[in-house]
């Protein structure tokens, strides 16, 4: 079945959900065959870097550095490079660092963004318009512009070379506030009225009615923020120097100097670093694609 999963009816902030799924026309025409051929060609092209890295990683160092560039090495394939990387590398440590910092960033972002988005969507309070305008305007601030003052701030707070320095500045996502607010706007108010009659507090309405209805968008935002945090290079690179705190992307940057020119080991490290998100993607492909598609247009 080729049902496009992207348009499965789901409440979404940026894509209207009333539209119908367009079933692909099944006729095999010359045009369609050509399209499939081109699509396949691009797909192969796009898979080559993975394949070449994998082939290299399973070679001996001698074969990898041999002047005869070949897919099938003369001494055969061996997991040697992976074993080596695991023995003297820090990949498990870096993976753990990435995992807990990204999880913390995602959790804090979700909580604070959903709270403020709820206020912007449902509560009438003085200064709301100004707040909304300021948040929207801040979307255009590119993080690299802030590296110097943020570094200085972390110096002043004595947080350089701590996990907090990685986490704290990464939890502000104005665009995600906007995405959540638009979603909350679409939730029918009638659902809350009964609770209001019962005298439920705002916080209770928020946690017991709004949040459960917002699972898809919360998941989408979480996925988007997590991927961003997991792969962020520039800020963790600036905020940490201590080898015990490096995240995966930053740690990986140091292997070139530590190993010298060990091509097989370099590729083995790169693949091991790539593995966690790729595996997660294989399992949660639909959610991830939907998440990126719904939040993506709101900006990064």
């Amino acid at each position: 079945m080729a049902t496009p999963t992207l348009t499965r009816p789901a409440p979404s902030a940026t894509t209207a959900n009333s539209l119908k799924i367009r079933q692909p026309r099944k006729k095999l025409t010359v045009g369609r065959i050509a399209a499939i051929a081109v699509a396949a060609f691009i797909a192969v092209l796009w898979l080559i870097p993975f394949a070449w890295a994998t082939a290299t990683a399973f070679k001996t160092e001698t074969d990898a550095a041999a002047p005869d560039v070949t897919w099938l090495p003369p001494s055969g394939f061996t997991p040697e490079a992976f074993v080596k990387v695991f023995q003297d590398g820090n990949i498990p440590l870096w993976t753990w660092n990435s995992l807990y910092t990204s999880a913390a960033i995602t959790a804090i972002t979700l909580v604070i963004s959903a709270l403020v988005a709820y206020a912007l969507s449902r509560i009438d309070f003085k200064g709301k318009k100004v707040l909304m305008t300021v948040i929207i305007a801040s979307i255009i601030i590119p993080p690299p512009v802030l590296i110097i003052p943020l570094f200085y701030q972390m110096l002043a707070l004595n947080l350089i070379d701590t996990s907090w320095a990685i986490i704290l500045p990464q939890v502000i996502h104005p665009a995600m506030v906007f995405v959540l607010k638009k979603f909350f706007d679409q939730i029918p108010r009638e659902l809350e009225e009964a609770a209001v009659m019962d005298g439920a507090s705002r916080l209770r309405i928020f946690t017991q009615i709004i949040l459960p209805l917002s699972r898809p968008i919360l998941a989408a935002v979480a996925i988007f923020v997590f991927i961003g945090a997991w792969n962020n290079f520039l800020w963790p690179f600036i905020a940490t120097n201590d080898g015990n705190l490096l995240t995966l992307p930053v740690g990986l940057q140091t292997i070139k100097s530590a190993y010298g020119i060990q091509y097989a080991q370099n590729m083995a490290s790169a693949l091991l670093a790539a593995l966690p998100l790729i595996v997660v993607f294989l399992f949660f492909q639909r959610q991830i694609i939907k998440g990126v598609a719904t939040t993506g247009l709101a900006g990064t």
Binding site: N158, D161, I238, N241, D242
Partner: peptide
């Protein structure tokens, strides 16, 4: 330099 400035070098 960054690590030394940060105080946890």
């Amino acid at each position: 330099a960054m690590a030394s400035a940060g105080g946890r070098p």
